[in-house]
Write a protein that binds this DNA or RNA. Structure first.
Length: 349
DNA sequence: CGCATAAA
DNA sequence: TTTATGCGG
């Protein structure tokens, strides 16, 4: 779960179409994307897609077809995988593990009662990426010729570095955390724009586009203040202050400028004095301002797809439908021949 | 989620 | 051609 600043970002975000991302390199938060697929690509009762050996394949299905869409639209995805979590994150990881166990129990209970809606709801909350699933995802992307970057620690920090260095145009994640890490452009809902039914109202999920400098200007704060607001609201590295959401955090920071001031003035929220360990706060801030980065990542240019490897991997190893995979690969081959054509034309110019 | 297929 | 529905693995 990322930092909750949806309302604060509301007036800054813009809509961008898929077509406007033509020819751009976009660094995608791989864990964020894979968890999304894992949560959503399920049957009515909440069971994920599986191959004959019982290995979960929901993430591979989502990753494969969405990535083909990117390539077909001449958008260049680069998937960035998380590395070793910071010590500050261990507490959140422990809490999430507990939540997942609770969700699993509730899911099983609902399945026994035959309540499909409840079963599916709790099944989504049990989603867990294991080592094998991560390895499978990297392999598939590699076969597709799509660059993979392994972050040393936080993927979102790695992405922010790559965006600001100019190696990629923007970052893509459902979470806002890359903004705290300083990435100047963030894309949300990064996929083909589609309309979905929620109840009886249909909504279109457009790609959102957020510029960090514009956000800071609109809120009239510095990035350091944005980070401090994140700390008050709660991030993966600090649980936040009870009773403080984005609205309160913003007004507190606007009024007192910093957490240090808030603590030293013994500011109260809902009758409670905000009492924080400033050394710890400093460590969290430092994690956002000076994160561990892998500077030597491989080329971000896309490579040639290995069609036979993709077929073997998806059809033979993971029991994907042959016709679906071949259809998708036909689309990929068309892109390949089209790009060959243009490079040939450019050669003769 | 995104694909395939049916229905409009 | 567009929109709704249900499977995919």
């Amino acid at each position: 779960m990322g930092v909750k600043i949806r309302e604060l970002v509301k007036d800054t975000k813009r809509i961008i179409t898929f077509e406007n991302l033509f020819n751009k390199k976009i660094a995608i938060d791989a864990f964020n994307t894979l968890y999304q697929f894992l949560a959503i690509i399920r049957q009515q009762d909440g069971t994920p897609l599986k191959d004959y050996q019982g290995n979960i394949t929901s993430h591979l299905s989502g990753l494969f077809y969405r990535t083909i869409n990117f390539l077909e639209g001449n958008i260049h995805p680069i998937y960035v995988f998380d590395g070793k979590p910071s010590n500050l994150k261990l507490e959140i990881i422990r809490e999430r593990k507990e939540r997942k166990l609770e969700a699993k129990a509730k899911m099983e209970e609902a399945q026994l009662k035959g309540d499909l809606v409840e079963a599916r709801k709790f099944a989504q909350a049990t989603s867990k990426l294991d080592e094998k699933m991560i390895e499978d995802s990297k392999n598939l992307l590699d076969f597709m010729g799509v660059p993979v970057v392994q972050a040393s620690s936080e993927g979102e920090a790695q992405i922010a570095y790559m965006v600001n260095k100019g190696d990629v145009w923007g970052s893509a994640s459902q979470d806002y955390d890359t903004l705290l890490f300083g990435a100047k452009r963030l894309l949300r809902n990064f996929a083909v724009t589609r309309s979905r039914k929620v109840g009886d109202t249909s909504i279109t999920l457009d790609i959102e586009w957020i510029l960090l400098p514009r956000l800071l200007e609109n809120l009239d704060i510095t990035r350091e203040q944005l980070i401090e607001m994140g700390i008050l609201i709660g991030t993966d590295f600090f649980q936040g202050v009870k009773g403080i959401g984005e609205k309160t955090a913003y007004s507190l920071i606007k009024k007192h400028n910093s957490i240090e001031e808030i603590v030293s003035k013994k500011v109260k929220v809902r009758g409670q004095i905000i009492d924080l360990n400033l050394d710890l706060i400093e460590m969290v801030k430092d994690l956002f301002l000076n994160p561990s980065i892998e500077e030597n990542y491989p080329s971000l240019n896309k490579g040639k797809p290995k069609f036979d490897k993709i077929e073997d991997f998806l059809i033979n190893k993971h029991n994907f439908s042959e016709s679906r995979v071949k259809n998708a690969l036909e689309r990929l081959k068309k892109i390949e021949s089209a790009s060959k054509q243009t490079s040939l034309e450019q050669f003769f110019k």
